[in-house]
Amino acid sequence: MTTAARPTPAHMPHRRPAPAAAEAPPLEVRPAHRQPWERAILASNLFGNHRFVAIALSTHADGRGHIARQPRVIGLVHNTGLPAGQVRVALAALVDRGFLGMSPPGDDYATADLTLTLPPGALARARRAHQTTTNRSSTDA
């Protein structure tokens, strides 16, 4: 019984690299109202520290999601008691998940302006979570 020779990189066909896909234009960042945003954060599956930083950040926002006086990283460190590294990781997770908008995009968290934003579907998940807890409490009574 003979086996075929194993292919090597030399056996691979020569191909021209595919052109890079055009990058999608960034979505328009629209501020989210503070109360539904907080419900969406609490209903999300974010880590506890990330939710803690998010709620601490939301205390600086007005009702429409704008943060007039940006607390920056150092302010959130003082508000939460977490190390600066953990605050930065939490902010990065919130931006990646779509819960925060940064202006200018990709800037350092110590200097960027943040805005509360809602990712698609987050508000619906928060409503469903709120309805199930309300239904449970009414049936328990």
Rank of each mutant, 00 (worst) to 15 (best):
A112S: 10
A93T: 12
L94S: 01
V29Q: 15
D140L: 09
A32T: 09
D108C: 05
A129D: 09
R125M: 08
T117E: 02
G121W: 12
T117D: 00
F99A: 00
V77W: 05
V53I: 10
P104F: 09
A21E: 14
P83M: 02
T8P: 02
P31H: 15
T139C: 03
V95W: 00
H14K: 10
N49K: 12
A93Y: 04
T80S: 06
S137V: 12
T117P: 05
D62F: 09
P13C: 00
A92V: 02
A68I: 14
A10V: 09
A141S: 13
T115L: 10
A56P: 04
T132I: 10
N135C: 05
A18N: 11
N49S: 12
P13L: 03
L46C: 04
V29G: 02
G81A: 10
N45W: 05
E28M: 14
R16I: 10
P105D: 02
A54V: 03
F99K: 00
E38I: 07
D96T: 10
P9E: 06
M102V: 08
P17Q: 06
P71M: 14
L27H: 15
T2I: 14
A122P: 07
L100H: 02
A56Q: 08
R6Q: 13
G121F: 08
P36D: 08
P104M: 07
P83W: 04
I74Y: 11
T117Y: 00
P120C: 00
F99S: 00
G48W: 08
R15I: 01
H130W: 11
Q35P: 01
R125A: 08
V89T: 13
Q35T: 11
G85H: 14
H66Y: 15
R136I: 05
H66A: 14
P36H: 11
R30L: 14
T59W: 03
W37E: 01
R39P: 01
P19E: 07
W37S: 06
A32R: 08
I74F: 09
R88W: 10
L27W: 12
D62C: 13
S138Q: 11
T8I: 05
T3W: 12
T115W: 06
R34Y: 06
R51K: 14
P25W: 13
T139Y: 09
W37L: 00
R97D: 06
L76A: 02
E23K: 15
H14D: 03
R51V: 01
L57N: 01
T59V: 04
P7D: 04
L76D: 05
L42T: 06
R34P: 01
P119H: 05
P26E: 15
G121M: 08
L42F: 00
